[in-house]
Design a protein around this nucleic acid. Structure first.
Length: 468
RNA sequence: GGCGCGAUAGCCAAGUGGUAAGGCACGGGUCUGCAACACCCUUAUCACCGGUUCAAAUCCGGUUCGCGCCUCCA
């Protein structure tokens, strides 16, 4: 399995620290509102990475935090006249609902920044002791110059950064030794939540949170650290600086970053008015469609969001689901006999698509190619499997489609809903009428059911229905 | 100013040296009492110019266009 490592800028063979086990940290959202569809991309992408690794037999320890103390949360709390905690708890719950609807599995651990303050104070203390941090009137800064590998992830040159960015130099933070030094601990302002520390009553800087939670739940050296590409600098760069200076070990061995989700080829932003929450999208689409859409492109390529593309994704996903559903209907009339010789060949051909699927995923999680393999399997099934086949063949092919989709977190088998008895009776009556060539009555029943929101489909495999 | 990415059919999107996967839409067909659904078939020489090579979408140089990061941000 090859993964693209942002730090080395190349695809590398993935080898975990401990054979058979993977430790993985994904930076999670700051919970000050419903998550937006941009937040959803890393969630879906790295959940898929996790699922694929498990498919390959790895035991994955997957940690993803919620940042539950932050300026934006405090601002929102003040706006509503409630506590910051109330805001963060509310949106963590909402976020979990969205994740479930996108079929993003809960992490092994979802740490909260506010529950890890002790660890942060400890790490900051160690950094001060080792000379990597300094306290100025209650604010603790990281001494960037002291860490000679600073910039190794984002491939930035410190001198360029200092020279090229005026704003860093004129922010009025004269107390910093160097404009690139960043905050580890800051004193509270009036009305803000705070914790007591050796330096001041205050709260941690954003970057230290992830360093501490990663260390606590995964260890000082981990396999994979992932997140959106915008986090490369400064967030992940700073995490490396803090962790490696504190622990004296390599922080993470593989750095994975997803590209942005754009809208109308522009970055999503509130000022442009092209901002969508996952919740809004869920009102219009099954979030499985969103997941399918996100996986239809490579995770390192920018992806453009639009209603047209969602429609296309919905139709494409429907094609897979129809195939699975058709196979299921075929099962009803199929024989229980053993696989015939010809069927063994058919099954073998069908299984070959899993190899293609795995090869695609092995190549830095090429989900677009993996989905193509699923479609090839679907086409193969549609063309080669009929109700004349045995149950063993039909169910084996159907299960294979479901399995490959499940690795991507896509639910191919839609649960069958039970209809009310009277509706079932009407359907039966219509079938009888059709048989008796009483089409007037048959159409009447069809119209009646349509009014109740049920569309009937007379397929080769029998009568199907779906809700409007 | 510094660093980096991209340009493949109407749309989306794989493909990093040997003559272009897959999906959506369009068109054609099969099935069906009809309709709808479903299914099958069909659709490109890869932004432009020059170079390397027996061979390039794929490597090198240049041009044009688009985008990202350098500041909170997934």
């Amino acid at each position: 399995m090859k993964v693209y490592n942002t730090q080395t800028k190349r695809k590398e063979e993935f080898e975990p620290l401990v054979p058979g086990k993977v430790s993985m940290y994904v930076c999670g959202p700051t919970v000050y509102n419903f998550i937006h569809i941009g937040n959803a991309r890393p969630m879906i992408v790295f959940d898929t990475v996790r699922r694929y690794m498990e498919h390959k037999g790895y035991e994955v320890n997957y940690v993803s935090n919620f940042t539950d103390v932050d300026d934006k949360i405090i601002a929102k709390a003040n706006e509503e006249g409630v506590t910051a905690q109330e805001i963060s708890e509310r949106y963590i719950e909402e976020c979990k609902k969205d994740m479930a609807a996108m079929n993003v599995r809960p992490a092994t651990t979802h740490p909260l920044a506010t529950q890890e303050i002790d660890g942060m104070i400890e790490m900051i203390s160690t950094l001060i002791e080792k000379g990597y941090a300094y306290n100025v009137d209650g604010t603790v800064y990281f001494r960037t110059r002291k860490f000679k590998d600073y910039g190794k992830l984002s491939h930035k040159n410190l001198d360029d950064l200092r020279a090229g960015n005026r704003s860093l130099l004129v922010t009025g933070e004269d107390q910093k030794e160097d404009p690139l030094d960043f905050v580890l601990w800051k004193p509270k302002k009036e009305g803000e939540p705070f914790w007591t520390s050796p330096w001041s009553d205050g709260r941690p800087g954003w970057h230290i949170e992830c360093s501490v939670m990663s260390k606590k739940y995964l260890g000082e050296e981990i396999d994979i650290h992932a997140g959106g590409e915008d986090l490369i600098f400064p967030h992940h760069e700073n995490e490396i600086a803090q962790s490696e200076c504190c622990n004296g070990k390599i922080f993470a061995r593989y750095w994975l970053h997803n590209a942005f989700l754009n809208i109308d080829n522009r970055k999503m932003s509130k000022s442009l008015g092209n901002f969508f929450t996952v919740r809004e999208i869920s009102e219009k689409y099954d979030l499985q469609v969103l997941r399918f859409f996100m996986l239809s492109a490579h995770y390192r390529s920018p992806l453009n969001f639009s209603a047209e593309l969602m429609e296309a994704s919905r139709n494409a996903l429907e094609r897979i689901r129809n195939s699975v559903s058709n196979l299921k209907y075929m099962l009803d009339g199929a024989s229980d006999a053993e696989l015939t010789a010809a069927e063994k060949k058919t099954l073998e051909d069908a299984m070959a698509f899993e190899t293609k699927f795995d090869e695609a995923m092995d190549d830095d999680f090429n989900t677009a190619d993996a989905i193509a393999a699923v479609f090839e399997l679907v086409k193969y099934a549609n063309s080669n499997v009929t109700s004349d086949n045995t149950k063993s063949l039909i169910s084996a092919v159907r299960d294979e489609i479901i399995k490959l989709c499940d690795i991507l977190g896509i639910i191919a088998e839609v649960k069958e809903e039970l209809l009310d008895e009277d509706i079932e009776k009407l359907i039966e009556e219509r079938q009888a009428a059709r048989k008796a060539k009483n089409f007037a009555r048959a159409d009447e029943i069809r119209a009646e059911l349509l009014e109740k929101g049920i569309t009937l489909l007379d397929t080769r495999e029998g009568v199907k229905w779906k809700r409007a």
